[in-house]
């Protein structure tokens, strides 16, 4: 019951953030450029052409009405037409988003799957060599530019060692239509194409690693700090006094309460992960939404760029919603008191 009201509050809250986000995007798209129609048509357009376009975009109406139109378009999922591809932005994004989603999802799994255990190891052997090694790794992971890491991985694993493919999601020679979820890893399993699954995984590994490194280091650092904090709590001493074995104290009694801060921050850091995806997709020629965004920016394709920004924001909000629900499950204090 408490959880339900917590959930409802959290969802309403996300909607509010999305409204704010739409305002920001509206300001960037319609107010900052001065005259979007002129911008879209270029300097050589005639005044008549500009006027026609203004009417088409509703730019001759008062600003509030323009915003209402913009919102109305958004609710219908209409992000306008891309100047670059001359197709609805909506379709372009839908086609490219799955690739980005697959990359980001694998990145998060990598970051959590390695970051949390590394943090536990560092906390358990605090001030011993494993701790030093993990902290060293965490700092280097945080300060290596993702594009630089991407390039290094590409040279090393791709060109020098010839271990893994360095571009795209699948080899050109491979025919496969990801028609269920758009995620190659899942669709290939559904259709029983293990060869596709293997290739998709091989293609995914380097980009995901390049993108995950910084978050992985951050997770390791946060988990370490949180575990050390929890290990000083009375309830851990009490568990010791009641004869709970050490492995259980570390993996259950300490891990679960220390899991909340890293998880919450992981949600907030998700924004920088999306930012990183823009760079990594470019380096690995990953056919995702971020790469699409960069191409359209260079073409001054305003509708497409705003669509990409909006979808990134929605992605961020949804991920944070999911993480908050997860935090609610992990920590009863959150779902009972309704706050972090």
């Amino acid at each position: 019951m408490e959880f339900l009201s917590f959930l409802i509050k959290r969802v309403l809250w996300s909607v509010l953030v999305l409204v704010g986000l739409s305002m920001v995007i509206f300001v960037i798209a319609r107010v900052v450029p001065g005259d979007p129609a002129r911008m879209a048509l270029g300097p050589r357009a005639t005044p008549e052409q500009v006027a026609t376009m203004q009417a088409e975009l509703g730019l001759d109406q008062p600003i509030l009405q323009q915003y209402a139109l913009f919102i109305e378009g958004l609710t219908r999922g209409d992000l306008g037409k891309s100047l670059l591809t001359e197709r609805p932005v909506n379709d372009d994004i839908r086609e490219t988003f799955a690739a980005t989603f697959e990359l980001v999802l694998c990145t998060m799994i990598l970051a959590m799957g390695f970051g949390v255990p590394l943090g536990m190891i560092a906390a358990y052997w605090k001030d011993k060599w494993p701790d030093t090694a993990v902290r060293f790794f965490a700092i280097f992971a945080a300060v290596t530019p993702s594009f630089f890491l991407a390039l290094l991985l590409q040279i090393l694993a791709g060109y020098v060692l010839h271990l893994l493919p360095t571009t795209g999601r699948l080899p050109n020679s491979m025919e496969f239509e990801a028609s269920w979820t758009g995620l190659l890893l899942i669709d290939s399993l559904i259709s029983g194409r293990l060869d596709v699954f293997g290739e998709a995984l091989r293609h995914l590994l380097l980009p995901a690693l390049a993108l995950a490194a910084a978050t992985m280091g951050q997770m390791a650092r946060l988990t370490r700090a949180s575990m050390i904090d929890v290990s000083r709590q009375d309830y851990i001493e009490a568990a010791r006094a009641f004869g709970i074995p050490e492995w259980l104290r570390v993996t259950k009694y300490m891990l679960r309460p220390s899991f909340v801060p890293p998880l919450t921050i992981m949600g907030l850091e998700f924004a920088s992960l999306i930012g990183g995806a823009f760079v990594v997709e470019m380096v690995f020629a990953w056919p995702g939404m971020a790469a699409y965004g960069i191409r359209t920016i260079l073409q001054k394709d305003l509708n497409a760029v705003m669509g990409v920004v909006m979808v990134s924001g929605v992605f961020f909000v949804l991920v944070n919603l999911a993480i908050d629900v997860l935090v609610g499950f992990v920590d009863p204090r959150v779902r009972i008191r309704g706050r972090r």
Binding site: D234, P257, R333
Partner: peptide
């Protein structure tokens, strides 16, 4: 916990919150 057991002082912090 079996032969000798202890009653902790601070009820607020001696139980695992999760």
């Amino acid at each position: 916990g079996t032969a000798m057991s202890m009653v902790f002082q601070d009820p607020m912090s001696s139980l695992n919150p999760v």
